[in-house]
Design a protein around this nucleic acid. Structure first.
Lengths: 98, 98
DNA sequence: TCAACTGTTCGATTTGATTCGAACCGTAAC
DNA sequence: GTTACGGTTCGAATCAAATCGAACAGTTGA
């Protein structure tokens, strides 16, 4: 049931993470998820066009920042907190804290 | 003698730091500086055009990632390691380690 | 089956960053 | 003085990312 399309923990690169986080919308996604564990796509970026939002999910997924779980027609996103913390300790906290 | 044109420690934002680090050349600068304390501009990016290099110094400076010291006509760059570590612990280490 | 809903993909446009050469400024050496 | 050097600034060109609408695929419920 885990629709895991992103890199394995060991394959997450700091370059991809930095690139993923260097965008206001994606930063907002990460901060929203950090406060809420797991959320549906539309709950995260309700004001953003579907295609644009989908583009950002992809960037975050491929960078290894988020993982997704599909439940029917809904998609739930969740931070890969453990993976990120173990691989780049402090980075996620710094980003969320601001 | 400190030609400090960047933000004060408390004014360094994670957004600016992420944007500064999201570039291959600037990442290379940070990693080079991390291994060498203080370096002249041309020692860091000898193969890059002056104007391009200068552009990247500016981005790194304004983000608060590096500080500079002018000695005659030479400019020496140095990581603001203490400032970054105190403000965003773990981030610089993660970036340098890769 | 059919309509409604969630999210993806495609293609085109727009936007912003990067890049470079040329001119420039300040310093150093002669 | 002048010439050489290190770095900045300016403007234009280039290139990559973001954005959007439209068409699409899969799921749900009537």
């Amino acid at each position: 049931m885990e629709t895991e399309e992103g890199p394995a923990r060991g394959d997450i690169t700091i370059e991809a993470v930095l690139a993923a986080l260097d965008h206001p919308l994606r930063l907002r996604v990460v901060r929203t998820l950090a406060a809420a564990e797991e959320l549906n796509c539309q709950e995260i970026l309700p004001d953003i066009t579907k295609s644009t939002a989908s583009h950002h999910w992809k960037v975050l997924r491929e960078a290894g920042v988020v993982e997704q779980r599909r439940e029917g027609r809904y998609l739930y996103l969740r931070l890969r907190r453990e993976d990120l913390d173990s691989r780049f300790p402090g980075v996620l906290d710094a980003v969320v804290r601001g």
